[in-house]
Design a protein around this nucleic acid. Structure first.
Lengths: 109, 109
DNA sequence: CCCATATATTGCAATATTACGATGAATGGA
DNA sequence: TCCATTCATCGTAATATTGCAATATATGGG
């Protein structure tokens, strides 16, 4: 045991959880914020920006790319990463809907 | 090694990551959705609703409570859980700000 | 082709999460 | 008081994540 029982939940729930998982690390939050800030695309600058090893950054980038939050294109000898605007907006809407579920009706407890 | 290097990041980044971590499991998404739907507060019904053991549900509830997304009050022999509207809105705004960072400017790659 | 630079992948160790049975604590009724 | 119900906590096993050194891969310049 120890493995998440994915089969018990809807695709939508698993998707939301997967996106949240991609955001569930401060390094990945920091990477996204940096990419948003410097609209121009960055590559290995992230290694200096954050204090993590190159292999570690590469792994975080891989996870962000896996959920489609960022995209990378080869640019000479380096690789240019930037936000993927489409999935970004898509996820913004997903979270927007999730949180806007009219919870205003005060506590019941 | 293996522990997240929390010290490298800002409090805001760590907070955002912690909230995301709370949402990073389909069972917790399902619990929140159920609480939102049935405004009336639920307790052990969640054990039947999802297919997980009581101990497992209890653990997920604990994590959701730890980040303040839900609250529970004793109600006779059972415990009544519901969304905490204040932190809920607070987190909605946090994610709203995060995602609204003017990413509209198309790809650069 | 050889070298330097930039990024990805692999392998491993440390730590965290997930799940559940068993047990403990609290409440209400008989 | 004793018992049943409800939930929390503990202990444990399985699995996932994090981080990095070492190594592999790819690109451009000479």
């Amino acid at each position: 045991m120890g493995a998440t029982k994915t089969g018990l939940f809807t695709k939508q729930q698993n998707d939301a959880a997967n996106l949240a998982k991609a955001l569930a690390h401060p390094a990945r939050i920091a990477i996204l914020q940096h990419l948003v800030k410097i609209n121009a695309c960055i590559c290995g600058d992230l290694v200096e920006e954050l204090g993590l090893a190159q292999a570690t950054i590469s792994q975080h980038l891989k996870e962000l790319k896996a959920v489609g939050l960022i995209q990378g294109t080869v640019e000479g000898t380096s690789i240019c990463y930037c936000i993927n605007p489409e999935t970004w907006k898509q996820y913004r809407d997903l979270f927007g809907k999730f949180f806007d579920c009219s919870v205003a009706n005060g506590n019941c407890c």
